[in-house]
Computed example of a mutant assay.
Amino acid sequence: MELRVLRYFLAVAQYQNMTKAAHELLVSQPTLSKQLADLETELGAQLFIRGHRQITLTEEGEYLQARAKEIVQLADQTAANIQADQIITGRLSIGAGESVGMKRIMKVVSEIIQDYPDVKIHLVSGNADEMETALKHGTIDFAVLMGKRDLNKYSYLSLPEVNTWGLVMKKGDPLALKETISPNDLIDLPLLMSEQAIEEHPFQDWWGNLDKKMNIIGTFTLVFNAQLMVSQGNAYMITFDHLINNSNSSNLTFRPLSPTLTEPTNIIWKKNIAQSKVAQLFIKRLAASLN
């Protein structure tokens, strides 16, 4: 079945008159009649009941009408996308640590995939140094960084979501009765901390001269694994808010540090490179979400 013939068929079905359809299509009536007769022969089915003044569809004709509308619409949309340079496909690679800011990013990504089903997403987890290295090597398109870092060598967007440091513990722990956690509360506690937090020293000013009294028993890169140890009651975890399961079924709870200690969230990408169309769309939609 040719698209041109399907358009002829739909015009006759719409006007229910061969002469009027031929006039609208700018073809002669004999040509139109022959094209439709050939279509019926090709399909092996009668599509029209030809009356003296009006043409009506048979059951097979009604079925073809519904399908032909879909086929023609798809063809028209495909052509329009090509002509308007709107084809969006390919893979979007995002590397990130764990942060509440990822909720906004995943919402944008989900909407893109819904609008453009041919787009695929690849997520990579790791700390800021690992993600910057992956971005430099071209294995990811974007990196989401938490913390104060030099962004001058990148293009970037700053997200409004702020990461608040705090202590994760079992709900029955005495410290869970406090609204906030001070440096003195942490003295001699068995602490788990992220490798990035230790390497970048954001806590040096916060706990000041109590540094030597902090008992850091281990490090982690992913909160999920570390919280399994905290659930056993053998450790406490310093991490960002919104990363643990806060449901009633969870035996863990989070308390923010005091004085408050926060980290910004930024998404970065390479400067002065030609971005794919899906990457351009992601940047555009993420920027729009900030407004």
Rank of each mutant, 00 (worst) to 15 (best):
V72A: 06
L286V: 02
Q204I: 15
E200I: 13
L43N: 07
G208W: 01
R67E: 12
L243G: 07
R91C: 14
V72Q: 01
D173M: 10
S249I: 00
L64C: 07
L151H: 09
E24I: 10
P202F: 09
A197N: 03
I140E: 07
M193Q: 01
L6H: 02
E195R: 12
S93V: 08
E24N: 03
D85P: 06
L74P: 00
G90R: 03
S93N: 14
N272K: 13
L123V: 07
R285M: 04
A143K: 00
E130R: 10
L32H: 07
G95I: 08
M1L: 11
S93H: 15
Y236H: 01
L26T: 15
A134P: 06
N251C: 12
L175R: 06
E40Y: 02
E195P: 09
E70K: 15
Y116S: 00
K171D: 04
E24C: 13
I49S: 15
L10N: 12
K120V: 11
Q29C: 06
L157A: 07
V5F: 07
V100T: 09
D129Y: 08
I94H: 04
Q196D: 07
L151V: 10
I121D: 00
D118P: 00
K171N: 00
R7C: 02
S276W: 01
G218A: 06
Q35N: 14
D173T: 08
E199N: 14
V27H: 01
E263A: 12
L36W: 00
R91M: 13
L123C: 10
K153H: 09
I217C: 01
I82A: 14
G126F: 03
L159V: 05
L222Q: 13
K284R: 12
R255S: 12
L186G: 04
A197M: 08
L74M: 15
E161D: 13
L222I: 13
H201P: 08
E24T: 05
E2G: 13
L74V: 13
G166M: 04
N272F: 05
T133K: 10
T56A: 05
I187T: 06
K212E: 15
F9R: 05
T262D: 05
A79W: 09
D188A: 13
M102A: 03
I181K: 05
N234P: 03
L222F: 06
S182V: 04
Y116N: 12
L192T: 04
L167V: 03
E195V: 15
L290S: 08
Q227V: 14
E40F: 05
L191M: 02
A80C: 01
G61E: 03
T31D: 05
L47D: 10
E132M: 08
A75R: 04
D76F: 14
D141E: 07
R53H: 14
M1G: 04
Q280A: 12
A37H: 15
N152I: 09
F224E: 15
F203P: 03
G233F: 07
P160R: 06
I112Y: 02
I181L: 05
I87E: 11
I198F: 09
R53K: 15
L6A: 05
T265E: 06
D188V: 03
Q14R: 14
D115R: 04
V168P: 06
F142L: 03
L64N: 09
H242A: 12
K34H: 13
D173I: 01
